[in-house]
Design a protein around this nucleic acid. Structure first.
Lengths: 281, 281
DNA sequence: CTATAAATTCAATCGAACTGAACATGCAGA
DNA sequence: TCTGCATGTTCAGTTCGATTGAATTTATAG
């Protein structure tokens, strides 16, 4: 079945004559006639009552013309997906490291709903390394992870945000245990590296936790000291002594080089609520 | 845009490789490749990430494949309208003479809803002559009217029902006026013709009414005598003296000869709740 | 009944899409 | 890391289908 024929049928239904439809579609009257003949043959049913001179649609013809409208409307919707005005359309599979999701997701989902009504995002969370692997093998289109050194082969890192690490200590004299974000994760590894320079923290009793929220809650309770990105500590409700460290936690967008999406990395980064994204392999 | 290409895209999305799609669709691998290339050119967007060997769908590609499903589904729905199993599908414009609509419509609409879910009927009422004219000029596909003699040129009458005319007289001695259904209508003319043979009725005082319901109500009230089809008098609530007349009221389905619908007249008649329809020009 | 506009038919032509072969390339196994 | 294979791409040739224009038919208006 040819959509071209359906388009012609629609024009005939609208204008009421083969001739007018032919003119409007820049075709010969004979081409119009042949198309309709072919359509009737394919459907095995009379679409027109040819006993009258401008042939009239039969009841079946009217119904088919309506159905043709639907087919063509669906086609138009498909066309609208691509084209210059919709460069970021599609169905993206995006991975998010858990520690970043709370920070980025709300704004991100809001921007998407507002600016990209035709775009869908299938989201999943995971650990940085795991997500980076999924991007490499094509199971994800992109992932937001904590940068730990350099990108995997074939992957590009687009910097989304850099947050200074802060040593947070509840007020008081007693030496408190160190609340360590799970050291096998991306951010955990950054923190572990920093501990190497701080023997006082490195040698303190250690409590390993794998949720930022939990660590902050413990900090509020005065249960221990911790090192976390500044942005996460902003959620603390009790005052604490803050010491800025040299290390930073970098959130990056991972894409696979050469991938069509890779070209959109900057735009996707912008969508993730970051003002100016810096790309680096 | 070719639906054939969309069909191919759908298979690729389903099976995950060009080769498998080509086999399943009985095409060359090269044809599949060229179709997808053409589709990408038309949409002006990359549907596949070709940096990997079985090329993978891009986010845009996934979205387009979904949209293709919708286009193809709409096409399937269109196909289902025609074909051997749906001979009476379509959007019919059907006229009904007012005096028949009460009798036929309920059963008719019920049958349609049950047996022809894909068929729509645009209904209108009118006088027999007017409706027959609309059928002749193609503004209606068919009409149910009261037969007054023979069909108009180019029209076919398919008999739907014949109801004997009954002279109904309320019990009592007094000579009552005659309640005459509007004599310019189809059934009214049949009644008028019958009056010619009955001087007692013809010369009685006459009250002209244009609704069967009204006449029956007047009959119940003992206000006058009348002649109506048996079926309409069945709605009377009071007993009356009934005399069968020779004349009959014939309800016929009018179609235009040579029209595709004309071939379905018998079936449409059956749908109108009549057991055996007899056709006559 | 005739003239005219509209649609159909048909043969010729044109173009789009498919095919098969040669070529390129990612990926798996050594 | 290298090699072979399977998969996809490219290209030229061919085939099939669609369009065209002329001739013909036919419904409708005058």
């Amino acid at each position: 079945m040819q959509n071209r024929d359906l388009r012609t049928l629609r024009e005939i239904a609208r204008l009421g004559s083969f001739r007018e439809a032919a003119e409007r579609l820049n075709m010969t009257l004979s081409a119009v006639s042949m198309q309709m003949k072919a359509l009737e043959a394919q459907l095995d049913g009379a679409l027109f009552d040819r006993s009258t001179r401008p042939p009239r649609l039969t009841p079946l013809g009217r119904r088919v013309a309506e159905a043709a409208d639907e087919v063509l409307a669906a086609e138009d919707r498909l066309r609208a997906l691509a084209g210059p005005e919709a460069p970021l359309a599609g169905r993206f599979r995006l991975g998010l490291v858990a520690s970043a999701s709370a920070r980025l997701l709300p704004d991100f989902l809001q921007s998407v709903a507002r600016d990209l009504p035709h775009t869908r995002f299938d989201l999943r969370t995971g650990l940085s390394e795991q997500l980076e692997g999924l991007v490499a093998e094509g199971a994800l289109d992109a992932a937001v992870v904590t940068a730990t050194g350099v990108a995997l082969g074939g992957g590009r890192h687009t910097l989304l945000a850099r947050d200074r690490l802060i040593l947070a200590v509840p007020p008081g004299e007693a030496p408190l245990p160190f609340l360590h974000f799970a050291p096998t994760t991306g951010i955990g590894r950054v923190i572990a590296a920093e501990l190497a320079h701080r023997p006082d923290l490195r040698d303190a009793p250690r409590i390993v936790l794998d949720h930022v929220e939990t660590i902050v809650a413990c900090l509020d309770a005065g249960v221990g000291r911790t090192v976390l990105p500044e942005i996460d500590l902003a959620r603390a409700r009790q005052p604490f002594d803050a010491t800025a460290l040299d290390a930073m936690r970098s959130l990056v967008l991972v894409t696979r080089i050469g991938t069509p999406l890779d070209a959109y990395a900057e735009r996707l980064a912008a969508l993730l609520g970051v003002r100016s994204a810096i790309s680096a392999t």
